[in-house]
């Protein structure tokens, strides 16, 4: 993974784990890699991984069991609301970029509908 985003690295790692949780690649109750394992895998300072896990825990997306490790939350409601939040962020970003390109809301609408129709047709 390349950390070329301008976000702090711990946030980039949080986003990585969040999208894995949203997509189901990590399911509820799954054990996350240990700080050390993830640090080796991503080539990132262990303290940064630790920070990412702590913040995820604060957001109640993961929980730690002493001596056992860090686990993805089993609360499906939390995962659902994470997915909704990520979807909102994506849509926001999409509309902002489209606005920047000079599209009106109606134009964006028709582009989106066209796209959906094409996808449905396949």
């Amino acid at each position: 993974m390349d950390f070329n985003d301008n976000l702090p690295i711990y946030m980039q790692i949080m986003n990585l784990i969040k999208s894995k949780m949203a997509s189901g690649e990590i399911s509820g109750g799954d054990k996350l890699p240990s700080v050390r394992e993830l640090s080796k895998e991503l080539k990132v300072n262990p303290n940064t991984i630790q920070r990412a896990y702590q913040e995820l825990e604060r957001e109640e997306l993961v929980f730690t069991q002493r001596g056992m490790g860090t686990f993805a939350t089993e609360d499906m409601e939390v995962i659902k609301s994470l997915k909704r939040k990520m979807a909102r962020e994506l849509v926001n970003r999409f509309f902002m970029e489209m606005k920047k390109l000079g599209f009106s809301i109606d134009e964006v609408k028709s582009i989106v509908f066209e796209w959906i129709e094409r996808e449905d047709g396949e």
Binding site: F3, N4, N6, L7, P8, I9, Y10, T48, R51
Partner: peptide, 15 residues
């Protein structure tokens, strides 16, 4: 702190 500088300036350390 590298992370704090990234956060404050919205830039990588390299930049």
């Amino acid at each position: 702190s590298a992370e704090a500088l990234r956060e404050e300036r919205g830039k990588q350390i390299d930049d």
